[in-house]
Design a protein around this nucleic acid. Structure first.
Lengths: 218, 218
DNA sequence: GCCATTCAGACTGGATCCAAAACGGTAACA
DNA sequence: TGTTACCGTTTTGGATCCAGTCTGAATGGC
């Protein structure tokens, strides 16, 4: 039997997801110190699985650690933000170019499904749902490249700016841009035009980074 | 006071370094299961700091983890190896291009110093020392780019193949190639010729990946 | 003989307790 | 007044112990 049945998550997996969500949703602010005892109590686990989860998040760059001083939510400087987006530009272009050669009908179906959710959420102003569907859209494409390390690295780069991106989708105009650019990119992908798709995604990112930069200033 | 004095490492830091060394030196073979109790006892610590170190190594891709089944030393397929080197090609080129614009005399001095050690070790056939100095040479250059995330990512990619690279420097001819290519790259860097340096490093990597691929077959 | 079941041993996941380090406030002193 | 030493509190680092899960071999049914 495939045993694909979802097994109960370990405490550590639960904590990992929960802390990640707290950081990316802005509930834990950048720069804030993480008090293990208090956080563990709030999540109703001991400090042991919490600390292992924090080690994972440290590897993803979401928190920073200093011996004997504990963990803090990572802060991004303007230079950090530029670096993250420059790396995303490089790596996502690579993923897209590799993926274009391997796109199947099944992948297109997944992309369309994700895009449908994006558009619906954009209409309704459902910010959280739109962010999730947007991520699914992009990563469906990235995963089609068959380069798991690349996908993982891109994932950590996305995560590292989530704490600052939470408000991006609040803007009606931003949401419209996302929808339009996704459509244009999809059309390019269907035509097998990797460079066209890359250009659309670059524009996509470029708009987002400017908004985030504005948030960093304020 | 700057307090740059080296403080005694935590057990966790000690374990991390020790396990990393064991893996990259081939002492722990790819695919081997890691028995926490036994390993902790051998290193004379409890399982707690060991597990946190393993979580860090998981983030670096040196070990793989499955819930309730523990950690194993990561294995690389041929496809994995190609992916790692493709990503290194992309990312190291980016680092070199950024670094060339920022190279100072101090950096050149560090590069020369590392290169001197490389050449001495190459002559003497000091494999371990040569690997260390080679890494220092490359990362001195990468760090000059002022992109800490990029350096970190490249570092994890280097680490992930170390378990297979341990024998590369054993070959007299391989060692000579490294020395010559470093010199050529240094000359290009001094001339401000980023593309020339990138080409030399590409050739450098290309030779290495072929040797590693041979090891994977056997 | 072949396959599903059971059960003991081994190993990982997590909780609790203790040790060590860092922090913050106070008082002594130049 | 500014500085330094001291000490109690807070927080992190690590050890030990127990619970839950997996593995694999023996058992029993067909």
């Amino acid at each position: 039997m495939p045993e694909s049945a979802t097994r109960p998550p370990t405490a550590q997996q639960f904590v990992l997801a929960e802390v990640r969500r707290a950081i990316t949703s802005g509930e834990l602010r950048p720069g804030a110190a993480i008090r293990q005892e208090a956080l563990a109590e709030r999540l109703e686990v001991s400090r042991v699985p919490l600390r292992e989860a924090l080690k994972t998040l440290e590897g993803e760059g979401l928190v920073v650690y200093r011996a004997h001083r504990g963990y803090r939510v990572a802060e991004l400087s303007m230079a950090d933000l530029r670096e993250v987006y420059r790396l995303r530009e490089l790596l996502e272009a690579e993923a897209i170019r590799a993926a274009v050669l391997l796109l199947t009908d099944a992948v297109f179906a997944d992309l369309e499904a994700a895009q449908a959710v994006v558009e619906k959420a954009a209409d309704e102003g459902a910010v959280e749902e739109m962010a999730r569907a947007n991520r699914r859209f992009h990563f469906t494409l990235f995963e089609a490249a068959g380069m798991p390390r690349l996908v993982r690295i891109i994932g950590t780069l996305w995560d590292s700016t989530d704490a600052y991106r939470s408000l991006y989708y609040a803007g009606e105009e931003n949401r419209r841009h996302v929808v339009a650019e996704h459509r244009a990119a999809l059309a390019a992908l269907r035509a097998g035009d990797a460079e066209g798709a890359v250009r659309w995604f670059d524009r996509h990112r470029g708009a987002a980074v400017e908004v985030l930069a504005g948030q960093l200033d304020g």
